Amino acid sequence: MTMPNLDQTEGIWIGRASDQGFHFVQDVFPGDTQREQWHRANCQILIARGQLWSCTCWLRNTSLFISTSLSGCT
C-alpha cells in the first residue's frame, strides 16, 4: 500500500466534507486503517501549508476541528 499524497487527501476531504461548515479531521477520516491515519497526518501538513484551515484549533480527542472551505474560517 502506498501513502496517499496531499492532493489525494485534499480531494477526499472535499468529497467527504462537501464544503459544508466545519468538521473534525477524525470525522472526515474516521477509520483505523493505516491509509486513514496517513490522511489524518496529511491534514496536518495541509493545515501547516495553509491549504486547509485550522479554526482556533478546537480539539476533540486531540484531533483538529477545521474548516471545510479550504479558504479560511468565517
Rank of each mutant, 00 (worst) to 15 (best):
A41Y: 05
I47P: 03
W53R: 00
N61H: 14
T9I: 08
C73A: 09
E10Q: 12
E36R: 13
G21H: 09
P4R: 07
E10I: 02
H23D: 04
F29R: 11
G31K: 08
R35Q: 13
L64W: 00
R60H: 09
G50Y: 07
G31S: 14
D32R: 13
T2L: 14
C73M: 05
T9D: 09
R49H: 05
Q20T: 05
I45W: 00
I12E: 14
S18I: 11
T56S: 11
N42Q: 06
D32C: 06
I47R: 07
P4F: 06
L64F: 06
I66M: 06
A41F: 05
G11R: 14
R35G: 03
R16V: 14
F65P: 00
S71I: 04
A48P: 02
R49V: 00
S67T: 03
G15L: 11
I12Y: 02
A48W: 02
T56I: 04
G31V: 07
D32M: 11
R60C: 06
T68V: 02
I66L: 11
V28I: 15
Q37R: 13
I47V: 15
W13I: 07
I12L: 15
N42P: 07
L64H: 09
G11N: 12
F65R: 10
D19N: 09
G11I: 01
Q8I: 09
C57V: 02
L46A: 05
W58N: 14
L46R: 13
T62E: 10
G31C: 03
M1L: 11
C55F: 01
V25I: 15
D19R: 14
Q34N: 09
L52P: 01
Q51I: 01
S63M: 05
F65G: 01
P30W: 13
H23S: 14
L52Y: 02
V25D: 01
E10T: 01
C57L: 06
G31L: 04
L70I: 00
G11F: 00
L46H: 08
M1E: 11
T2Y: 12
D27K: 14
A48I: 01
R49P: 02
A41G: 07
T2R: 15
I12Q: 15
L59D: 08
T74S: 07
L6F: 02
A48D: 13
G15P: 02
G31D: 10
A48H: 12
H39C: 12
C43F: 02
T68D: 11
S71T: 12
I45F: 01
